[in-house]
């Protein structure tokens, strides 16, 4: 990619919109003046243990130590991560390589500066009595999914020589009900949410992780704009430093992280046992031999190359420029 895709007209001076936003924000959330630099981290979903590393960083003051005052902005069913990051409302967003690739192809000046989920959490969940344990098992089955995810299924089929015509796709809402009601035989979902929900309801499911069948797409990636990379490096380094410390603590005790999550967000309607199970199940997705050797969030030219291949299958061609390891290098170099 060319280094400049000028979406912002004035990068350094406060714009009218920022002035208006600041005014609105001041009215809505009066804040105390602090010495630390404020920064916002846009999460990709509602508060849950999925982001527990960030909660640890916040509650233990890891960001404060680094001179940063981080606001965590929850996501939701209708809160895409990319707009606030492009607009500068959020310094960093939690995205995924495929979403980021699509946004970059639409002109967004993003770079991936860290990878929280080394293995993509997308999975095919089925009932234990009627399991889909291998991509070939999909033939002749009904799969429930959002049609927006068709490229994911197509990529999986291409990677495993499965004829997609043999699969019946049923567009469904993102919840487990269609599977347990028998409207479909399997669901395309995250390994860490709907199967966990079914487990908590006493329903056993078979979970086939796409990442185990050639689907290499970094998930829960940290994205920032090129503009921030050029002008707010210190803040990005500080933010990632806190994240890395927080997720390090998480790795040492996922259960404690689940406890903290439920404590910090008593109004989020979180169930402690569900959070514990989710915390446990996302560990193998986030921590690997690679992170043991290089540290949390790391990526190599090889993992990037694998991602580029899968993304090409998804119809989102990108170059290796999309990944920028300079922030991580600075964090670990200094650390």
């Amino acid at each position: 990619m060319t280094p400049t895709t000028p979406i912002r007209r004035e990068a350094l001076t406060p714009t009218r919109r920022e002035a208006l936003v600041l005014g609105a924000a001041a009215l809505l959330t009066p804040r105390l003046a602090r010495a630390a630099t404020p920064a916002t981290l846009q999460l990709s979903w509602l508060h849950s243990v999925q982001f527990a590393g960030s909660y640890i960083a916040q509650s233990r003051g890891y960001w404060g130590d680094a001179g940063l005052d981080v606001t965590l902005l929850p996501g939701g069913p209708n809160a895409p991560v990319e707009p606030p990051v492009v607009a500068g409302t959020a310094l960093v967003g939690i995205s995924a390589a495929d979403y980021t690739a699509a946004a970059v192809n639409q002109g967004a000046p993003f770079r991936i500066i860290g990878v929280a989920m080394q293995k993509n959490p997308f999975a095919i969940a089925s009932l234990a009595a009627n399991p889909v344990a291998d991509p070939r098992d999909l033939i002749g089955r009904r799969i429930g999914m959002a049609l927006a995810n068709m490229p994911v299924l197509e990529a999986l089929c291409a990677l495993n020589d499965v004829d997609i015509a043999g699969i019946e796709v049923v567009p469904t809402q993102y919840d487990a009900a269609p599977l347990v009601q028998g409207q479909v035989d399997c669901l395309l979902c995250w390994a860490t949410d709907l199967p966990v929900a079914m487990r908590m309801q006493g329903i056993d499911s078979t979970v086939m992780l796409l990442a185990d069948h050639g689907y290499a797409v970094h998930s829960q990636t940290y994205i920032a704009t090129q503009d921030s990379l050029a002008n707010r490096r210190a803040d990005l380094v500080a933010l990632m430093k806190g994240e890395i410390r927080g997720w390090g603590d998480y790795h040492a005790g996922p259960e404690a992280a689940a406890n903290l999550t439920v404590q910090m967000f008593p109004d989020a309607g979180l169930d402690l046992e569900t959070q514990k199970l989710q915390a446990e199940r996302q560990v193998p997705l986030m921590f690997s031999d690679l992170t043991d050797a290089q540290g949390f969030g790391w990526f190599t030219d090889d993992t990037v190359a694998a991602n580029i291949e899968t993304l090409a299958l998804l119809g989102k061609p990108v170059s290796a420029d999309l990944w920028d390891r300079s922030i991580l290098e600075e964090v670990y170099g200094a650390g």
Binding site: G75, M198, F265
Partner: peptide, 23 residues
């Protein structure tokens, strides 16, 4: 529905949570 745009609490948040949790 406004809470779907990113909120920390409220009945909308609980609805999303409950639906996903098969609760």
């Amino acid at each position: 529905v406004g809470e779907f745009t990113g909120a920390e609490r409220g009945l909308g948040v609980l609805t999303v949570r409950a639906l996903r949790g098969l609760d």
